[in-house]
Design a protein around this nucleic acid. Structure first.
Lengths: 343, 343
DNA sequence: TTGTATGCGTTATCAA
DNA sequence: TTGATAACGCATACAA
């Protein structure tokens, strides 16, 4: 179990009878070193299996080339897509990723932030946990000038950039679409509106109703955890409403699918009796029958944009503080679940 | 943009008029330091916002408390579940994760390994890319005694532990189930059998056929990339087979679902005309109609087991080399897609 | 173009 | 129980 001794620039220097300074410079491809010595050094380095010591380097340099990522959960289609996007950009730019999940708990999120901080991440990409109320735990980072970018689940603040879509508008479009399909009583299934995404979607939904003079009362609002199982529970509530809705806008596809399946079981026809619109364009939306109309939401791109912005800021190409909000395009994808007028 | 100066043990020592040695010891909770001085030090550290410098520490110690993870892709349900499991264990044990995806490319995998190596990960968890032929790129790690654990997509070798399920057996059970439901001509949709998972599943499938004296010919074997889209293409092939199969065992759920949807479109009844069994128990298997019979495959647990084993090895609790293979339980989950006998 | 010397923040060894 | 000091491997200011 003995670890082989690491090769250092000292070893290279000694063998070639030159100074470590020259070796160090050569390895960085410093133009000041002659081509000849460089060649010798590179060859020996290869031969002896030299690898640079990131820690010694970081100890001097003050940057770690590491980006921290904190997400509510890793195992959701949307989030894993975002992370794939982040990973793509970060890797190409030579940055490493430290990833952790808050499991939707503010407490775990605080711990993660602390760990990231202690690991000296150069910057942080965060999508907030469901029950995070305030974001004071990020203040330590601001104080050290460590940039933070929030994506998707963001916070009201003007310290750092937010990357997200226009949830209000998307929800408005979704609801309006249902209205245009002839729905008169539209319900909304969502989570407790404490995160921006749910607050905004609720607002967009209400705005569309108001605009078309459709009524809104609280029994049209069904609050759950947006899981597929919860969608099934929502279905039971829907069926219990005296004036049964003829359209439902759900704040995510998973829950929409759970609800649709349960309603179909109960003999409800979709979209004839109840039309559906979901949110996210999760692959499952193309499996459920009828296929689910939904909001396409560019997760991979969101990851790329967030990472790119952070890195640009870190490398001094751009500064984060100048742009406070980046809105990505989202669009309604119409499928069978909402098509009452088969024109 | 000035970075605030970092607080070091020198600062603490100076303020308290003691030596840095004492401060260092106190911060590690070394019992040799008196309670009183410890208290003073902790309080001051808190007050001044001291945080230890991992790089200086790692430079001295030879461990980084970092585990590297390389997976074919992040945005698949199964993989993101595995990573959630890894993350859970690693975080609890105070290890950080560096994650990268090979995008199913052997070349990118080699790069990732190199990066991980240069980042001095203490150990590596790997699920191999689809087209990785040999695993010589891990040899540098062996030489430095950096432990590697493969999971799910593993390699034939006896240098390190593999964590996986018994794919052969699972495939055998799946196929046998179809046979017991009365299927006589069973096809298999899978990827080119170069990775263990596909090789083994193919073998299990063939073994079941042989055992029940059912014929096998190459036109029953449909090779693709196992995506949902590819499942639809497979459907076309299925329909073109002269003696149309009455049962299909698919090496993953996504592809099975794509195939089912396309066949249904073509007027095939499932399971009456063709029965289906998938693999993975992806959530989508409970959405497609009829629900997909599949192999439940404990991703989260697999991540936990792999991480736990690696960490136990790193901390000296157990040694990896003693256990070469860890098989996790998997089981057939019977749903509507295969139930021909509704007894 | 190359070399010398020093510091980065810790931990560990030895001495007090 | 505490302190002085030498590594750890690298980058750089300054000198040559």
């Amino acid at each position: 179990m003995e670890k082989e001794k690491e090769v250092t620039i000292y070893d290279l220097a000694r063998k070639l009878n030159i100074s470590i300074a020259t070796v160090s410079r050569a390895l960085k491809d410093d133009p000041v070193v002659s081509k000849k010595t460089k060649k010798k050094i590179f060859e020996l380095a290869e031969e002896m299996g030299y690898r640079s010591n990131h820690f010694a380097r970081n100890l001097r340099n003050k940057r770690t080339d590491t980006i921290g990522v904190i997400v509510p959960r890793l195992n959701s289609y949307f989030m894993s897509t975002v992370i794939a996007g982040i990973e793509n950009v970060a890797n190409n730019e030579g940055f490493n990723l430290i990833i952790s999940q808050s499991s939707e708990s503010a407490q775990k999120e605080m711990n993660s932030v602390k760990t990231m901080f202690n690991n000296r991440v150069d910057g942080l990409l965060v999508s907030l946990a469901y029950d995070t109320e305030d974001i004071t735990h990020f203040e330590t980072l601001y104080r050290k000038n460590i940039p933070v970018i929030f994506f998707d689940r963001v916070a009201e603040q003007d310290m750092c950039t937010n990357v997200l879509i226009d949830n209000r508008r998307a929800a408005y479009e979704a609801t309006k679409h249902l209205i245009q399909q002839g729905c008169k009583r539209i319900a909304h299934i969502t989570a407790t509106p404490k995160r921006n995404v749910y607050i905004d979607r609720l607002e967009g939904y209400k705005r569309a109703l108001a605009e078309f003079d459709l009524p809104f009362s609280n029994d049209q609002l069904i609050i759950g955890n947006l899981s597929q199982e919860d969608g099934a529970l929502a279905a039971a509530q829907i069926l219990a409403i005296p004036e049964r809705p003829d359209g439902i806008f759900v704040a995510n596809d998973n829950s929409a699918v759970g609800c649709m399946l349960a309603l179909k079981q109960a003999g409800i026809r979709i979209p004839e009796d109840i039309a559906f619109v979901g949110f996210n364009n999760d692959p499952v939306s193309k499996v459920v029958e009828p296929n689910l109309t939904t909001i396409n939401y560019p997760g991979y791109e969101m990851g790329e944009v967030a990472a790119r912005n952070l890195i640009n800021h870190l490398t001094g190409i751009a500064t984060i503080t100048s742009t406070n909000t980046i809105l990505l395009r989202s669009e309604l994808v119409v499928r069978g679940s909402s098509l009452k007028n088969k024109t």
